[in-house]
Measured scan of single mutants.
Amino acid sequence: MEVRTIKVFTTVDNINLHTQVVDMSMTYGQQFGPTYLDGADVTKIKPHNSHEGKTFYVLPNDDTLRVEAFEYYHTTDPSFLGRYMSALNHTKKWKYPQVNGLTSIKWADNNCYLATALLTLQQIELKFNPPALQDAYYRARAGEAANFCALILAYCNKTVGELGDVRETMSYLFQHANLDSCKRVLNVVCKTCGQQQTTLKGVEAVMYMGTLSYEQFKKGVQIPCTCGKQATKYLVQQESPFVMMSAPPAQYELKHGTFTCASEYTGNYQCGHYKHITSKETLYCIDGALLTKSSEYKGPITDVFYKENSYTTTIK
């Protein structure tokens, strides 16, 4: 009895394709271990004539594949690729409408935090270190965002349907971005203890939790000093293409032309909904596939993004 075979390709990165001759009487799992086709788990399936010449994702289970996976995804987590594939199996079914010149995501599976993050990423200057993220990001900007969303979920250790947080998501993504040249110098002034300067680099240099107003941050924000008295913390120097200011959701007025974009969060910790506000020729609110415009805006804002380049204080 002759062994019926077909020729397929296996890959971990969709760049390096490895030619395989597979036995049609055995499952993919018996031949390769966990195997995925377009995100779908085909591990328990036997090869079919229609699979001839198709590319299958496999887990990096030998040295060659491990090197290829690390170079593309910059992670050695053995569960990463499987999590990416199972997320992709959902995100490829989502709709990605162009809204006001940006790629958004039609609401499904509690994905409003991903839509808000995706919209924000198209408006701030950011370059990702893992080629996987950078490639998928370019495709997302062009309207094909399924891979990018699935990668975000995998890097953030999230599953489809789980509630997510924009600030946490951005923080994970910033860790995989090139923020080497970003720098922030802060000064804390206390009447009792004097003053202390701190220099922050990388992710810490672009994120701040405690106030939404970048102007206020430049002037000074009140913080408790270690001595128990009130101290003032203010920005001395900022070198970065953008800054992200966050605070627990509270009524906040966004003035046209003073910011790049913002995240609105309605609801409580267990259950809520994100919308995205962007400042173009007027203010726009993007909620999944829905767009509304207004000249002014007041609502429960939790993150505001500002364009920056270089700032030095005039406070002496």
Rank of each mutant, 00 (worst) to 15 (best):
T27W: 11
V8C: 11
L118P: 04
N89M: 08
N16C: 07
T10A: 10
D303C: 03
T292Q: 11
K158G: 02
R4M: 12
H176W: 15
P248F: 15
H74Q: 09
A108L: 05
S294I: 15
A40Y: 14
L121D: 05
G82N: 11
C225L: 01
G164K: 01
T292H: 13
T91M: 03
Y234Q: 08
T232Q: 08
T75G: 05
Y137F: 14
Q98I: 13
P34S: 11
S86Q: 15
L186M: 14
K307V: 15
L114Y: 05
P131R: 06
R83I: 06
E296H: 15
G194C: 06
T232E: 06
G164N: 08
L88M: 06
T43M: 09
R167D: 03
M26R: 14
Y138C: 14
N187F: 06
E71R: 10
I277K: 01
R66K: 14
N187T: 09
I124D: 04
L114G: 02
V8Y: 06
T75E: 09
N100Y: 07
T302D: 00
N157L: 04
R141Y: 06
G164C: 04
W94D: 07
T198P: 01
K218G: 00
I223P: 01
K54H: 12
A262F: 00
D287C: 00
E239V: 13
V99C: 10
R141N: 09
A145C: 08
K54C: 15
V22M: 11
L163Q: 08
S25N: 14
V188A: 05
H256T: 12
L163V: 13
Q123S: 08
Q195W: 10
Y155P: 00
P131W: 08
Y234W: 09
V206I: 11
F242S: 00
L88A: 05
R167F: 02
K95W: 08
D63G: 07
N49P: 13
M207E: 05
L59G: 08
V3G: 12
S171Y: 15
D165K: 00
F9M: 13
N16A: 08
T35Q: 05
K127M: 10
M85K: 07
Q237I: 09
M244G: 00
V243H: 03
I286H: 01
H90P: 04
T64I: 14
T5Y: 11
D13M: 06
E168A: 12
I301N: 00
S246A: 01
P34C: 12
G39K: 06
E239W: 04
V203I: 15
T278V: 13
L121Y: 02
A40F: 13
E168W: 05
K46H: 12
Q230A: 12
K93A: 11
L235D: 00
A108S: 13
V189W: 08
L254W: 06
A146Y: 07
A117S: 09
N147H: 14
V188F: 07
Y96N: 06
I286F: 11
T64H: 09
V99R: 10
D165V: 02
D180K: 11
A154K: 00
K293E: 14
S50P: 10
L37S: 12
A87P: 00
A289H: 13
T292E: 12
E52D: 12
Q270G: 14
G161N: 10
R184S: 15
I223R: 03
N111D: 05
K191Q: 14
M26W: 14
P97E: 10
T312L: 14
K95C: 12
L290I: 15
I277Q: 03
E71A: 11
Q30D: 12
T302K: 01
F242D: 00
S295I: 09
G161M: 03
V166H: 07
I152G: 02
K44F: 14
Y269N: 15
Q98F: 08
K229E: 11
Y137R: 03
T76H: 10
H256C: 15
M207F: 08
T19M: 10
V185E: 01
E144G: 07
D62L: 07
T211M: 09
E308G: 07
G161Y: 02
V21P: 11
V22D: 07
H176T: 04
Y36P: 00
V189G: 02
T313K: 14
T19P: 15
D109L: 05
P47T: 04
P300W: 13
I45C: 12
K95A: 12
L126C: 10
Q195E: 15
V188D: 05
G29I: 05
G202N: 05
P78D: 15
T27A: 13
Y306S: 00
A115M: 06
Y137P: 04
I315W: 15
L163A: 15
L290H: 15
Y172D: 08
L291E: 15
T116I: 05
T260A: 12
F70G: 11
C285V: 13
T103K: 03
P60W: 09
G210F: 00
L254M: 02
N147G: 10
K219D: 08
E68D: 05
H273P: 00
T313C: 15
G267Y: 09
F305Y: 05
D38G: 09
T199R: 08
S104C: 12
D135E: 13
A108M: 07
G164H: 03
V21N: 14
A247P: 00
P249W: 01
Q123C: 09
T258L: 07
F80R: 05
D13T: 10
V304L: 05
Y311G: 06
T266V: 10
T302S: 09
D13L: 03
K233R: 14
F259N: 00
V221Q: 07
Q31G: 06
D62S: 15
K46W: 14
L283A: 00
C227H: 04
V42Q: 12
Q195R: 10
T64M: 13
Y96C: 03
S25V: 11
Q122H: 03
G299I: 03
Y73P: 05
L37A: 11
R184T: 04
D77Y: 05
W107C: 05
S104F: 06
N110W: 03
C225W: 01
N110R: 03
W107I: 01
C193G: 03
K298C: 14
F217W: 06
P47S: 05
A69Q: 11
K298T: 10
T199D: 05
E308W: 02
Y73C: 03
A115K: 06
V203L: 09
G82K: 12
G272F: 00
D41S: 12
R4L: 12
A69D: 09
Y84K: 05
C227E: 00
G210H: 01
I45V: 13
I315P: 15
V203Y: 15
Y73T: 05
G143Y: 03
W94K: 05
I301E: 00
T103N: 02
S295N: 07
T292C: 09
Q98P: 06
H273K: 02
F259M: 01
I15P: 05
D135L: 08
Y208K: 01
T5C: 14
P78H: 11
T75A: 09
K280P: 00
R4S: 13
I152D: 05
S240D: 01
L200D: 09
M209F: 15
P97A: 09
H256D: 06
L254N: 01
Q122F: 05
A132G: 08
C112G: 04
S50G: 13
Q237N: 09
V236T: 06
K7C: 14
T120V: 13
P131A: 05
T169A: 06
V12F: 06
C112S: 01
K293L: 09
M245K: 00
I45K: 11
K275F: 00
V58Q: 09
K275D: 00
H90S: 12
Q197K: 11
L118T: 06
Q197C: 09
W107T: 03
T76V: 14
M170F: 08
F128A: 01
G161W: 04
T199C: 12
E162L: 01
T211S: 09
N178K: 13
F148S: 03
L118D: 01
T302Q: 04
V243C: 05
T314M: 14
W107K: 06
D77R: 04
E168L: 08
V22F: 06
C261M: 00
H256M: 13
V12C: 10
V21D: 13
G194K: 06
V3R: 14
P97F: 09
G82Y: 08
E204G: 10
Y297C: 07
Y311E: 11
H276C: 11
T211W: 01
Y297P: 00
L59Q: 13
K307S: 15
T292F: 13
L291P: 06
L254V: 01
Q230R: 13
R66E: 12
G161K: 05
Q30H: 13
P130V: 08
N268S: 14
R184L: 02
C261H: 00
P97C: 13
K191G: 12
Y252A: 09
Q230K: 12
D38Q: 12
N110L: 04
G33Y: 07
L212Y: 00
C182P: 03
Y113I: 02
S294C: 10
D180F: 07
L102H: 07
L254C: 00
S310C: 09
A150S: 04
T282L: 11
Y234C: 05
K298F: 13
T5F: 11
A247R: 05
